[in-house]
Amino acid sequence: MLRYILIRILATIPVMVIVAAFVFLMLRLSPGDPASVIAGDYATAEDIARIREKLGLNEPILVQFVNWIGQLLRGDLGTSIFSNLPVTTLIGQRLEPTLLLTLTTILFTVIVAVPLGTLAAWKSGTLIDRFVMLFSVGGFSVPVFVLGYILIYVLAMTLKVLPVQGYRSPFEHGLGPFLWHMVLPTLTLSVIFIALIARMTRASVIEVLQEDYIRTARAKGQSEFTILLRHGLRNAAVPIVTVIGIGIALLIGGVVVTESVYNIPGLGRLVLDAVQSRDYPIIQGLILFFSFVYILINLLIDLSYPLFDPRIRY
């Protein structure tokens, strides 16, 4: 067991190194002078020289890479050009809304998508199933921000039951206002995620329901509903949990857009501001941050497999 955990943890190291190397090379191999790209359109020659010096771009590339890795190991994700603040500080300032939005979304998604997908699998081929699949394919097709604006238009502007935009921290304003402002962003961000998880749940459960041991359970005289939950869903857990992990990547993309639609001051806004002010180190730092978070979450999910399937064990 310990060996399994150790191997899994060690296996993430090369992936993290590859992410770091990729981000490193992206800047160095891009056409044009990276320093002037970073400095932006209105930078003077001195600015560019200063940035080149600051980023160590004058050193040999191997030295740069070693420095880069060392910097990352110390937890340094770079420094913003405009505010001159470390990217980690900026992330710290903006982390709360993004984290909470992601959590409410994952929670809401799992609560909705897993029963929905299981139901569709159980009633596979019926009208219920068709409806779930239609919702799913629709969820994949509507851009997140269009969906956000439709929800704002209907629920906030026309029916006026929910606030249009904004964010209330639960620590300053209390849980009520926080949830009140979270409803629309969570709904918006969940749709594509629900489409993904419901689809995967349905597919996995349908596959499991064709296994021989389902037939064995029927031969015992077990009721269809208990078969669905005890033998069906439980055996489908590993692929479902896996796709939740992979879906995190999707969620990160969606967060950026959702936050900008609802004017939530989180990491997504940080990305957008960085794009507008051409503050490349922030974008770079956020890529690293999100990638590492993604890798860690998927590591945790890998480590949880033995809980769902006793065959996965070392």
Binding site: V15, I18, V23, S30, G32, P34, A249, I252, Y280, I283
Partner: peptide, 24 residues
């Protein structure tokens, strides 16, 4: 496959944003 795993860990939108802001 390790390289592909690494690439998949990078959020697609952010990767695209970074690539575009570097190359115009």
């Amino acid at each position: 496959m390790r390289v592909m795993d690494g690439l998949m860990a990078i959020p697609a939108i952010l990767l695209a944003i970074a690539l575009i802001s570097l190359s115009g």
